[in-house]
Write a protein that binds this DNA or RNA. Sequence first.
DNA 1: ATCTTTGTTGCACTTTAGGGAAACTTTATT
DNA 2: AATAAAGTTTCCCTAAAGTGCAACAAAGAT
Lengths: 102, 102
Amino acid sequence: MKTADPNIMTLEELKDKNYGKPGTKKRNELEAGYENFKIGVLIQQARIEKGLTQEELAIKVGTTKSYISKIENNIKEARLSTLRKIVELGLGGHIELSIKLK
Amino acid sequence: MKTADPNIMTLEELKDKNYGKPGTKKRNELEAGYENFKIGVLIQQARIEKGLTQEELAIKVGTTKSYISKIENNIKEARLSTLRKIVELGLGGHIELSIKLK
DNA sequence: ATCTTTGTTGCACTTTAGGGAAACTTTATT
DNA sequence: AATAAAGTTTCCCTAAAGTGCAACAAAGAT
């Protein structure tokens, strides 16, 4: 049973909610790099906000719930192209990748 | 022969310089998604600003110049872990990955 | 307590593409 | 033009992404 909320929050808000405001220890850790970044958690949060089950998301994307589970738990490092499919087809969002120098 | 400039600009500045200010057609295209994003071009620009050859960068990262070439020309989609190595070990920066919903 | 629904995990398998070695091309230098 | 340096492309192999299935564990609902 799902209670989809069409009024989803941005991931920035989600991050604030789940990992603390920018500057806090936990938030810094989250944003330090990929290993700590745990992209899976972000996907999970977004999915839940959308009121989707893993299986529903999987079907939208064209995969299985077991794979979604593994991505959310960072058991497998998905390719960028796969992450994009999940976020775009499944969640109606998009990924931004940026490089910060020095 | 290289003319390394220790005073490198941020990638934001590089993007402005090479793809126009935010809002322009070209810039929008660049930021639309990974396919158009051409992360390779950003890496190439950063490398050149650092005054490094592909081979020098490759050695710092622990890979080969042929691979760097492929990444810069978007022939291969590098893994996130590899992109991180290139940016962190090779260019002294870091990658940020974010998901934007709706 | 039991029946559903949702999520996790393990195993095995196929396919993909990440990444290296070396040959080749292009560009720069003298 | 010749030599060297920088960059590109081809070929190849293997690591891992991707997948399915099925069994299992939690969590909820009745």
